[in-house]
Amino acid sequence: MNRVLVYLLLSGAAIVLQTAFLPHFLPYGFKPDLLLILVIYLGLHERTWRGATLVYALGWAYDVFAGSFPGLHGFVLLGIFLAVRATVSRVNAESSLLLMGLVLLGSLMQAVLTIFALEFFVEGSDFWPMIFWPLPLQVVLNVLAAFILLRAALWGQLRFMPRRRVPGLHKLDSRHGT
């Protein structure tokens, strides 16, 4: 339960950063998708059904702050979460590079699922150019944000709670296991 509360607080912080903080520093409306990174982290370290429920709820909450289509991010983020769950049982999860790789693939998958959900279900609009052309920069931003967050989380853990264990973080630190 505590963990769920932490995830909710983290997602709230991610949304506030994306809507009210980062736009002041990044041009042309670009911003890293911090919620996507959280969803990939959940995919790596949460159980399937609990994680899926949480991710779907987060997706619905995300729709309140992004775009104009309720349910869109619920579907997209759930798809990404399930894909990460399917992947993580087949690869060596004990690497910080894995998170970067999954963020890269997750960003691409997010674009594909969003284009699919918009082009096939919303009539009369042409969304794909708005998603497709900025995609390379979006992927770079997401991977960079994941890298910075990982470093910051590891530093924070060592500095402020060296005896406590953040779920999965020790696995993602490249000093452990790679």
């Binding site: 899926a52 779907y56 619905w60 289509f69 309720p70 349910g71 579907f75 798809g79 399917a86 279900f121």
Partner: peptide
């Protein structure tokens, strides 16, 4: 998992047509 994803897609599709006003959530 696929069933869940399909349900999410269906719910999104239904919401697109029905939810024109702001919900309580």
């Amino acid at each position: 998992g696929l069933l869940l994803l399909l349900a999410a897609l269906l719910w999104y599709s239904v919401s697109l047509r029905q939810q024109k006003e702001t919900s309580f959530f």
